[in-house]
């Protein structure tokens, strides 16, 4: 499985990462060799094998609908790079996602 530079750029954009052209080259080659290695999973016959999302067969963990103390506004903002008016300030979002 060869991964192209364009694919690396697309994935970088999905992951909100930015790379120099040289880094893109390096990643394209490293990711290609890793993906080539994982191709070996294709050797296995997986008919009837269910995926494992949780390793133990446990289900249903709940909490009751009861208010518990949280953080103060000061605590919530103590690590914020740009706190303002009790909020986190960010650059304006352009409509759309």
């Amino acid at each position: 499985m060869k991964i192209s530079k364009e694919e690396v750029e697309h994935v970088a954009s999905l992951a909100r990462l930015e790379f120099s052209p040289a880094e893109i080259e390096t990643f394209a080659s490293q990711l290609s060799s890793i993906l080539e290695y994982v191709e070996k999973l294709g050797e296995l016959d997986l008919a009837g094998v269910e995926p494992t999302a949780h390793v133990h067969e446990i289900v249903n963990a709940f909490r009751d609908d009861v208010v518990t103390p949280g953080l103060t506004n000061e605590e919530a903002l103590m690590n914020a790079p740009y706190p303002e008016d009790g909020c986190y300030r960010v650059a304006k979002v352009i409509e759309g996602e």
Binding site: I3, E7, V8, V11, A12, L14, A15, L17, F27, L31, I34, L35, V38, L41, G42, L44, L46, V49, E50, P51, T52, A53, V55
Partner: peptide, 23 residues
């Protein structure tokens, strides 16, 4: 990067789900 790629559209079954099944 690798993880984003493995989950991205079109690759999920080939990579992520297959890996879960081998797990």
């Amino acid at each position: 990067m690798l993880g984003t790629y493995a989950l991205s559209a079109g690759y999920y079954d080939a990579y992520y789900r297959r890996a879960q099944r081998v797990r």
